[in-house]
Simulated assay, not measured.
Amino acid sequence: MKYLISVIFSLTISFTMAQQNGIIRKNLDTVIMNQIVSKVEVQEITFPPNQVAPKHLHPCPVVGYIKSGAVLFQIEGKEPVILKEGDSFYEPKNSNIIHFDNASKDKPMTFIAFYIKEANEENVKLVQ
Rank of each mutant, 00 (worst) to 15 (best):
Val52Thr: 11
Ile5Ser: 09
Pro80Met: 13
Met1Phe: 07
Arg25Ala: 15
Ser95His: 15
Lys26Glu: 13
Asp87Val: 06
Ile24Ser: 15
Tyr115Asn: 02
Val62Asn: 00
Gly69Tyr: 11
Asn94Pro: 12
Lys55His: 15
Asn34Glu: 08
Gln19Phe: 00
Thr12Ala: 06
Gly86Glu: 01
Asp29Leu: 14
Phe73Arg: 05
Asn34Ser: 13
Ile23Leu: 14
Ala113Trp: 08
Ile97His: 11
Ile97Asn: 05
Cys60Trp: 01
Glu76Leu: 14
Met17Cys: 01
Phe47Trp: 04
Lys26Gly: 03
Gln43Ile: 12
Val81Asn: 04
Ala113Ile: 01
Pro59Asn: 03
Val127Gln: 12
Thr16Leu: 02
Ser38Glu: 03
Lys55Arg: 13
Phe47Arg: 04
Tyr65His: 14
Asp87Lys: 12
Pro59Met: 05
Asp101Pro: 05
Ser104Cys: 06
Ser68Ile: 02
Leu57Gly: 06
Lys105Tyr: 09
Met109His: 02
Gln128Tyr: 12
His56Ile: 02
Ile5Thr: 11
Ser6Gln: 07
Leu4Val: 11
Met17Phe: 09
Ile97Cys: 09
Ala70His: 04
Glu79Gln: 15
Ile75Gly: 00
Asp101Leu: 06
Tyr3His: 11
Leu126Ser: 12
Cys60Met: 13
Ala119Asp: 04
Tyr90Asp: 00
Ile75Gln: 07
Met33His: 12
Ala103Asn: 13
Tyr90Leu: 01
Val71Glu: 07
His99Tyr: 14
His58Asp: 00
Val42Cys: 00
Asn50Thr: 09
Met33Ser: 00
Asp106Pro: 09
Ile82Asn: 01
Gln20Val: 11
Ser104Tyr: 03
Ile32Met: 10
Pro61Ala: 07
Pro80Asp: 07
Met17Asp: 10
Val40Met: 10
Gln128Phe: 07
Ile8Pro: 06
Asp29Gly: 08
Val63Cys: 05
Pro59Ser: 02
Glu121Gly: 13
Gln35Arg: 12
Gln74Trp: 14
Ile97Tyr: 13
Ile23Gln: 10
Val52Trp: 08
Glu91Tyr: 01
Lys93Phe: 02
Asn123Gly: 08
Glu91Arg: 00
Asn34Asp: 05
Pro49Asn: 07
Pro108Leu: 05
Phe100Asn: 14
Val42Lys: 02
Gly22Asp: 11
Gly69Pro: 04
Ser95Ile: 10
Val62Ile: 12
Val71Gln: 04
Leu57Tyr: 15
Cys60Asn: 03
Phe9Asp: 02
Lys84Arg: 11
Glu85Gln: 15
Arg25Glu: 07
Thr110Phe: 00
Gly22Met: 11
Glu85Tyr: 06
Val42Leu: 10
Val124Asp: 03
Leu11Ile: 01
Gln51Trp: 09
Lys55Tyr: 08
Ala18Asn: 10
Ala53Gln: 15
Phe73Glu: 04
Gly64Trp: 00
Phe15Gln: 06
Leu126Met: 11
Ala103Val: 00
Ala53Asp: 12
Phe9Thr: 06
Met33Arg: 05
Val127Phe: 06
Asn50Val: 02
Tyr115Cys: 01
Val127Cys: 08
Leu83His: 03
Ala53Arg: 02
Leu72Ala: 04
Lys2Glu: 09
Tyr3Ser: 15
Leu126Val: 12
His58Val: 08
Asn102Leu: 08
Leu57Glu: 11
Pro54Ala: 15
Asn21Gly: 04
Ala70Cys: 09
Glu85Met: 02
Asn21Trp: 12
His99Glu: 05
Asn50Ala: 14
Lys93Ile: 12
Tyr115Ile: 00
Glu41Leu: 15
Gln20Cys: 10
Gln74Arg: 13
Gln51Thr: 09
